[in-house]
Design a protein around this nucleic acid. Structure first.
Length: 488
RNA sequence: CGGGGCGUAGCGCAGCCUGGUAGCGCGACGGUUUUGGGUACCGUAGGUCGUAGGUUCGAAUCCUAUCGCCCCGACCA
């Protein structure tokens, strides 16, 4: 019903790869049906969502504050966090979108380890080049190990071990895995943690042209992914940094708390990917999207060119701040040549493959989304990533009619494959509203004796604050329609 | 890694200067009262004051060391 139509996204592996166990898989929960990859509905009285009324002192920026206050994360050490149930749900939703969009683009999911042997890094030369950001560990045999900050070496090794012919190309492999970079100064909660969840993908192609198509394909899939998360992320020409490479774009979400200064032509913020369908195999179509989204001036401070920027009409010049949520690179044969990742081409010659790597900061995206979508009461989740589809607030817990009405709403929404969060605590209305506002569910159904007397409940948009009174069945239909439209 | 700051109850803080054996608000728990935007009142539980040394009759308080965390900067998905 609300499930994506069969065939739109062929056989997504989401949720089976990471994490190994699904929420509610112990059998105590009702069997999830349509949205089994998302989670389960929940009664707040049975949930674990330790909200804080006061802001912990260590949190400086709004996303960090709200994530702590909403009971989404708990710091374990500097830049390292536990994901509490509410935060975990959002994390998995973001991850799910990334999986779906990567597989839609034809990229193949897999999983590489967090801990790596240093050998491959010595071979590529990055063991020394990477510096103290890399967490180095010795095992009991005194072997050099490291907690991977990225996986170019490992994927290249896998590729060279098993692929030898141009006939096996093109190929793009990706995984979503925890990384560790020992930042000198972690801060801003999950926006700049030391441990972070990242999708990184690697394309292998016979020619530079093919590799650039892979680059474009990633750009398209990233635009789609961010839009599904309710974000506008602008591709900006960027600096290649320690990965190295020729072509690279960063995707930035505009936000005052962003770490990078960005310069752009305001026309670019008018661009929407929308629900257009793209044939990912079409070089022309992907190229057209790239040109559409990168032809206007948009650069981070690293690559900013004041002279070029001044060619933009003054009224459209913007200087702002942005949060980097992804980056795509084409780096040619840098690793393949160094590590002997070659294939035999049509003429029988051994040639190094052309590669690129492409990352999305999955855990960081939670912070970015909150930075871009909140008010003074709390978070406002976009429908695509919200931890629960809607909240049900029972204003008079213990009142027979109100309890029954809430229960039947809960059951009906659940039967449709939606996941409501039912606040069935014995709390005052104000406390329930404040909690719902804080955790940011986009829709709230408020149920009380007063309305029930007239046969209505109240449906409220978290984003606009607009409320309407309508019969319970109509409220259900409306929510189903909203989410049905997103899933379609 | 340079500069600064902070570790006292689940959270936010006071007490430290001028040593005398720990306190406030919120939260939690129990009760009464309330009930359509964090209600009010009563009661209860909870802290070897980050850790280790030292000075002292006596240390949260003074001294030393150490660990952790935060902020500014340089650096980074």
């Amino acid at each position: 019903m609300l499930r994506r139509p069969e065939g739109t996204v062929p056989q997504c592996d989401t949720g089976r790869i990471w994490p190994p166990c699904q929420e509610g898989s112990l059998g105590s929960q009702p069997k999830a049906t349509h949205f089994s990859s998302r989670g389960t509905p929940m009664r707040l009285s049975r949930y674990f969502m330790p909200v804080l009324r006061e802001t912990p002192a260590e949190a400086q920026i709004v996303s960090h504050r709200y994530m702590l206050r909403a009971g989404m994360i708990k710091q374990a050490a500097a830049g390292i966090y536990s994901w509490l149930p509410l935060g975990y749900r959002v994390l998995r939703n973001i991850e799910r979108i990334v999986h779906e969009e990567q597989q839609r683009a034809g990229h193949i999911p897999m999983l590489m380890p967090t801990l790596q042997s240093a050998d491959l890094w010595k071979e590529s030369g990055r063991y020394d080049a990477y510096g103290p950001e890399m967490l180095r560990i010795k095992d009991r045999q005194d072997r050099d190990m490291l907690y991977g900050p990225t996986n170019e070496e490992m994927i290249t090794d896998i590729f060279r071990s098993h692929v030898g012919s141009y006939k096996d190309l093109p190929m793009t492999l990706y995984h979503i895995q925890w990384k560790f970079r020992d930042e000198m100064r972690p801060r801003f909660g999950v926006m700049r943690g030391r441990e972070f969840l990242m999708k990184d993908g690697y394309n292998f192609d016979l020619t530079k042209e093919d590799a650039l198509h892979a680059y474009n394909r990633h750009l398209v899939s990233y635009l789609r992914s961010y839009e599904r998360m309710g974000l506008q992320a602008i591709p900006m020409r960027a600096d290649s940094g320690p990965i190295g490479g020729d072509d690279t774009h960063e995707f930035l979400v505009l936000a005052d708390t962003g770490e990078s200064e960005v310069f752009y032509d305001s026309d670019i913020t008018e661009l929407k990917f929308g629900d257009r369908t793209i044939d990912y195999d079409s070089v022309e179509q992907c190229q057209a999207v790239l040109e559409e989204f990168t032809s206007r001036y948009a650069r981070t401070d690293e690559t900013h060119d004041a002279a070029l920027f001044n060619e933009v009409p003054e009224a459209r010049r913007r200087v702002a701040r942005g949060i980097e949520v992804g980056q795509i690179f084409y780096f040619g044969t840098k690793y393949s040549a160094a590590m002997g990742a070659t294939v035999v081409d049509e003429t029988g010659a051994k040639v190094p493959v052309h590669m690129g790597s492409h990352g999305i900061g999955v855990s960081r995206l939670l912070g970015a989304i909150i930075e871009a979508s909140h008010d003074d009461k709390g978070i406002i989740w976009p429908e695509g990533v919200t931890p629960f589809h809607c909240g049900i607030v029972n204003l008079r817990q213990g009142d027979t009619e109100a309890d029954a009405a809430c229960q039947s709403l809960y059951d009906a929404l659940t039967a449709l494959g939606l996941e409501p969060l039912y606040d069935d605590r014995d709390e005052r209305a104000g406390a329930k509203f404040a909690t719902m506002d804080l955790i940011g569910l986009p829709w709230r159904i408020t149920v009380g004796p007063r309305g029930l007397k007239n046969g209505v409940v109240e449906l409220t948009s978290r984003r606009t604050g607009d409320s309407e009174e309508l019969p319970p069945a109509a409220a259900i239909a409306k929510i189903a329609a909203i989410y049905g439209a997103i899933a379609a």
